[in-house]
């Protein structure tokens, strides 16, 4: 069973009185352990696509199935629960909460899940894997861009999701940090997590198993020779 199955997904806005399709009939299937890169210029619809897949934005048409569950058929609360337990999301830009330490930022998904199990082991395992365990008690304003991004990845992995969505995770990172982030995704994919990430250029996309191109809301899979 595919972890992600997107069919005919559309999002239509009215901009300046004129209908505008941010995402136009997008289709995508991602299997467990697969790493898929979505490339496209700014405004091509990548972020809108991610947010519809994560159940954060209601599509105009189409369907999204995560681990066999049609997320559009769920109530808001059920969708929140699914997002919390099955989807890890690394949003675009700096997404850590400035007033919480790295430790508290990373365990936020666990807090929202209202679980009773011991969280400390999992948090420090993830921070260790990403090389930032020594920064657990540090607040985000004192971190570098790469450290913040790694903390955001750790947070996305907190509840052991089956699907990881990362919106331009290397967008504002230097080459070294970008490589570290992509290494982390590759490791996750190797452990069976389906990873879908977006990028402006091809550097990061080269690490993906498959590359999907997005232009004016439409998706097109690149053939092996194009990649």
């Amino acid at each position: 069973m595919s972890v992600l199955d997107v069919r005919g997904l559309c999002k239509e806005y009215v901009r300046g009185g004129v209908p505008f399709r941010a995402v136009d009939s997008a289709n995508l299937r991602v299997e467990p352990g697969e790493m898929v890169g979505i490339v496209g210029r700014s405004g091509s619809g990548k972020t809108t696509f991610f947010n519809m897949v994560a159940g954060l934005l209601t599509p105009s048409a189409g369907s999204v199935s995560v681990a066999g569950t049609d997320i559009l058929a769920l109530s808001d609360a059920e969708r929140s629960e699914l997002r919390n337990r099955r989807i890890g999301y690394v949003p675009q830009g700096q997404s850590l909460l400035a007033n919480l330490t790295v430790l508290d930022n990373v365990r936020l998904p666990h807090y929202f899940a209202a679980r009773d199990d011991n969280v400390a082991g999992r948090v420090f395992y993830l921070l260790g894997e990403l090389g930032i365990a020594h920064l657990a008690e540090t607040c985000p304003p004192q971190l570098s861009g790469g450290e913040m991004r790694r903390a955001a990845i750790a947070r996305a992995m907190m509840n052991r999701p089956e699907l990881l969505l990362a919106d331009e995770p290397t967008g504002d990172l230097d080459a070294g940090n970008a490589r570290a982030a992509m290494d982390a995704f590759a490791a996750l994919a190797a452990s069976g997590v389906a990873v879908v990430f977006s990028a402006h250029g091809d550097d990061a996309a080269r690490r993906a198993d498959r590359v999907v191109e997005m232009e004016r809301g439409a998706m097109r899979e690149r053939t092996f020779s194009e990649a």
Binding site: L56, D76, S80, R83, N84, R85, P91
Partner: peptide, 15 residues
Amino acid sequence: REFGLFRILGAKRGK
């Protein structure tokens, strides 16, 4: 933005 991030992480409206 902060509350939007909470929602991304799976916070329900009531939370």
